[in-house]
Simulated scan of single mutants.
Amino acid sequence: MRVILNIIWLVLSGFWMFLAYMLAGVILCIPIITIPWAIASFRIGVYALWPFGKTIVDKPTAGVGSFIGNVIWVILAGIWLAIGHILTGVAMCITIIGIPLGIASFKLVPISLMPLGKDIVDVGGSRAFPAR
């Protein structure tokens, strides 16, 4: 089922959001100081291309630096990418078949706003649900 959802996602939204993240990453590579945000943009772009079967978890080592970096990210590119996810999510929710895809688009909004301090892991992966 994940493969079918990912293929439909790729055609309807994934490829376009992937291009948006890649464009943001390339633009953020121009000034050298913003390269860490560009790397985050590339990482999330690959996740936005094929999201089903993966999940987001918090990094245990994330701290104040991640928070400050996320504030800068929101100003530089995050708000525009989040708006893109919201618009595509609303468009997909118009049909009953598109509702799961719209929900997936809405689930990408938090990471598009605050990518630093997060990891993208496989749902069945050992890091997805760490033992405490």
Rank of each mutant, 00 (worst) to 15 (best):
G45K: 08
S13R: 03
V26H: 00
W50F: 09
I96H: 04
I68H: 03
C29R: 04
I8C: 14
A91K: 07
R43M: 13
G98C: 14
P60K: 03
V26N: 01
I79A: 14
L76K: 00
L81V: 08
A38K: 07
N6A: 06
P60G: 10
T95K: 06
P100I: 04
I68M: 07
V26G: 01
L81T: 00
I39A: 09
I103D: 08
P60Q: 08
S66A: 15
F15P: 00
G63I: 04
I83L: 12
G125E: 07
I97V: 15
A48I: 10
G14Y: 13
P100L: 07
I27S: 10
I72G: 05
T55S: 13
K59T: 03
A91D: 02
I83A: 13
I111P: 09
R127P: 00
W50A: 05
A82P: 06
P110D: 02
T61P: 00
I30G: 05
H85Y: 13
I94E: 04
D119L: 11
K118Y: 01
G63N: 13
L76I: 09
I8D: 01
A48K: 11
G45Q: 13
I111Y: 01
L116V: 07
P31I: 15
C93K: 06
P100Q: 03
P115A: 06
V57Y: 01
